[in-house]
C-alpha cells in the first residue's frame, strides 16, 4: 500500500503562547512540535507498511522550520517527504491547505491518505475531509483501527458515548486518525542518520498558486481569556444569608 501522511507542525502544547502584533495568530518565535494526532497517523502508516509492504510518504506545508516534522518522520521510517515551503502556507484555511496538498500530489497514486484527526492549534478537523472531497475519494473520520481486506479496508470509527462503528471502504480513501490508537516509536539514531539520504521534494507556493482562492475563513481576533472575578457579600441574619446562598447556588450557578 502506498500511503500519504499529512503532517503539521504546531506550537508546543505546553509552551507559553505569544500572540502576534495584530492579535490574529501566534508569533513565529515559539517552540514547535509535531501535531500529536499526526504522529499517530504516521505510526499507523508505518505499521500498515510493515504488514502489507508499500511506501509511506509524508507531506507538510509551512516555512523552513516545518521541515523538522518531515525529518523526524523520515528518521522514524517514512520513505520520502514533500514540503510545501512558504511562510504564506501558515495563514491558509483548511480548504486552501487541502487544495495545495491536492495540487502537490496530482502526479502521485496513493492507496490511502492519512491525516491526524485534527490539529492541536486551529482544531478545524477539516483538512482531511476536504482533501477527500477534492480528490473525489471516500473518507472516514476518527479512525481507531484499519484492516485490509479483499475489497478494500475495514475501519473502526470512534463514536460518542463509548460506541464504535465498523465501516467497509473501497480504496483509495482518506482517513483521519485518532490519537492514542497505537504506541509511537522513537526515531533511532541510525534512522536519523539515514533520513539525510531520503528524498525530500520541495514545492513552492508558485507551483500550487493556481489551485488556491482567497481564504473563506479568517481569524478576526485571538486573545487570552480575561479573568473576571466578582465578589458579592451577602448581608442579614444567618438564616436569611443561607436562604440567599442556596438560591444563588441553585438558580444562578446551577450547581445544586
Amino acid at each position: 500500500m502506498k500511503i500519504l501522511v499529512c503532517m503539521k507542525q504546531v506550537p508546543q502544547k505546553d509552551a507559553p503562547l505569544k500572540l502576534n502584533e495584530s492579535g490574529t495568530w501566534i508569533r513565529e518565535d515559539v517552540s514547535y512540535e509535531v501535531n500529536e494526532p499526526d504522529a499517530y497517523a504516521l505510526e499507523e502508516a508505518l505499521r500498515q507498511k510493515e504488514k502489507h509492504g508499500g511506501e509511506v510518504v509524508v507531506i507538510t506545508s509551512g516555512p523552513a522550520r516545518a521541515q523538522q516534522v518531515l525529518r523526524e518522520a523520515l528518521a522514524k521510517g517514512a520513505d520520502r517527504a514533500i514540503h510545501l515551503e512558504d511562510d504564506a502556507f501558515v495563514g491558509l484555511d483548511a480548504l486552501n491547505t487541502a487544495r495545495a496538498f491536492a495540487a502537490a500530489i496530482k502526479d502521485e497514486q496513493f492507496d490511502l491518505i492519512f491525516t491526524g484527526l485534527q490539529s492541536d492549534d486551529y482544531g478545524f478537523a477539516q483538512t482531511g475531509v476536504i482533501l477527500a472531497e477534492l480528490l473525489g475519494w471516500p473518507h472516514a473520520t476518527i479512525i481507531m483501527q484499519i484492516e485490509k481486506n479483499d475489497t478494500g479496508i475495514r475501519v473502526k470509527r470512534e463514536l460518542e458515548a463509548g460506541f464504535f462503528q465498523f465501516v467497509n471502504m473501497p480504496l483509495p480513501a482518506v482517513l483521519t486518525i485518532q490519537s492514542g490508537i497505537n504506541k509511537l516509536r522513537y526515531a533511532t539514531l541510525i534512522g536519523i542518520k539515514q533520513a539525510k539520504n531520503k528524498p525530500m521534494r520541495k514545492v513552492a507556493l508558485a507551483d500550487v498558486q493556481s489551485a488556491l482562492t482567497p481564504n473563506l475563513q479568517k481569524i478576526e481576533r485571538l486573545y487570552v481569556p480575561q479573568k473576571t472575578k466578582k465578589t458579592e457579600t451577602l448581608d442579614g441574619p444567618p438564616a436569611e444569608i443561607a436562604k440567599k446562598l442556596v438560591d444563588k447556588l441553585r438558580n444562578e450557578l446551577r450547581i445544586l
Partner: peptide
C-alpha cells in the same frame, strides 16, 4: 543542526 536537536529530543523522550 536539525539532526543534533532531533538526537537530543529523541533521547530526552526515551
Amino acid at each position: 543542526t536539525d539532526d543534533e536537536r532531533l538526537v537530543r529530543d529523541t533521547t530526552r523522550k526515551f
